[in-house]
């Protein structure tokens, strides 16, 4: 069969398969939000009983007076045209759902990537070290670290880091995303476009000072999130390394006289990566839903806080917007995970 095209063919197939998957997810969101208890229209009045006419007009406005099937297609059309509607919650009432997401998502992306980077940089090498030195002191140390760091409450670790590096040593800002008045690219003329991620925007401006400012704010939340995850990553990598380092093909590689370094890093590690990529990728996807505790601890206005607020205020349009957005992100990330997996493992391709 067409060998050279097999990876490309796999990617194309996988993208095509993502479309029905997304549709199913969107449908599930629609159904769940409609069978959930609590009338969103009543929530608009915050517990007081509104006059019937007000209820009717609100229903009409939200399209809730239409038959369910019509509602469903309106819902799909709105999503695909990027129209997520206006918030009906107390906190964000009347604001565009899409705008709220667009403002907050970049902050979440920054700490997700930051946390993921720390977790990978710390967790993967530790896992490899432990897995290739089974039951030796280094293995025991890594296992102990993994267990302890995983059970530490995230806000406690965040507070300790804030206290040490932000308050006592004063090396790094203790919270927020930015120190000073104007965020990067505040003036529309200074950048070709704006991403909302301060690190990227300051680079677009070409302003190194701004970049340092943005990164400094990212360090503590990323460390907090990353360290907690690194314990889990180290354990996952270690478990898979143990499996691959005693596999038949690694024994055969030893018999061929391949140096130990190459056996550990080329063969055992690469094979261990196949399942690890899936697990870590899903963890990454979860981070995109917003690390609520980290966001709260470091006063970062991300998606996590937005979702939390809209749930507490029964802001149905906002919840729907965030969940739909998140579903899309999940579909995209799982697509990326599968493609990465296929790049590593030729057996996954067709």
């Amino acid at each position: 069969m067409a060998r050279d095209g097999s990876l490309l063919a796999y990617v194309l197939t996988r993208i095509l398969l993502a479309v029905p998957m997304l549709l199913i997810l969107l449908t599930a969101v629609f159904i769940i939000l409609r069978i959930l208890p609590g009338d969103p229209v009543l929530a608009l009045w915050g517990g007081r009983t509104p006059p019937q006419s007000a209820i009717d007009s609100a229903r009409q406005q939200l399209g809730l007076d239409q038959p369910v099937i019509v509602q469903y297609f309106t819902y799909l059309r709105n999503i695909f045209t990027g129209n997520f509607g206006l918030s009906i919650g107390e906190l964000y009432r009347g604001q565009s759902v899409w705008n709220q997401i667009a403002i907050r998502f970049p902050a979440t992306v920054e700490i997700a990537i930051g946390g993921m980077t720390v977790a990978c940089l710390v967790g993967i090498p530790l896992g490899v070290l432990a897995g290739s030195n089974r039951d030796k002191p280094i293995d025991l140390v890594v296992r102990l670290f993994g267990t302890i760091i995983w059970v530490i409450p995230i806000f406690w670790l965040g507070l300790v880091l804030q206290l040490v590096f932000g308050v006592w040593l004063q090396w790094l800002p203790a919270n927020g995303r930015w120190s000073g008045a104007d965020a990067p690219c505040a003036a529309p003329s200074s950048c070709p476009f704006r991403t909302g991620m301060y690190t990227v925007d300051s680079l677009l401006e070409g302003n190194l000072g701004h970049f340092v400012n943005a990164v400094a704010h990212l360090v503590l939340p990323s460390l907090t999130l990353g360290l907690v995850l690194s314990g889990f990553f180290a354990k996952t990598v270690r478990a898979n390394m143990l499996r691959t380092i005693s596999a038949d093909f690694t024994e055969a590689a030893r018999a061929r006289g391949i140096p130990r370094r190459a056996i550990v890093y080329r063969h055992a590690f690469k094979n261990a990566l196949v399942p690890v990529v899936t697990v870590l990728g899903l963890q990454f996807a979860i981070l995109f839903a917003g690390a609520v505790l980290t966001e709260k601890t470091f006063s970062i206005e991300g998606i996590g806080i937005l979702l939390l607020n809209s749930v507490t205020s029964k802001d149905m349009t906002m919840i729907q917007g965030v969940v739909v957005f998140y579903a899309t992100v999940i579909v995209v990330i799982s697509l990326v995970i599968d493609v990465l997996g296929a790049m590593i493992d030729p057996r996954i391709r067709l």
Binding site: A247, D248, F249, T250, E251, A252, A253, R254, A255, R256, G257, I258, P259, R260, R266, H267, K270, N271, V274, I344, D345, P346, R347
Partner: peptide
């Protein structure tokens, strides 16, 4: 010893299905 393995003394196994690294 490593230099002898594979160069001077070679070993072939029972199950060729699992003795080659699937990713290479």
């Amino acid at each position: 010893l490593r230099k002898i393995r594979g160069k001077e003394i070679a070993l072939i196994f029972q199950d060729p299905m699992t003795r080659l690294d699937p990713l290479f």
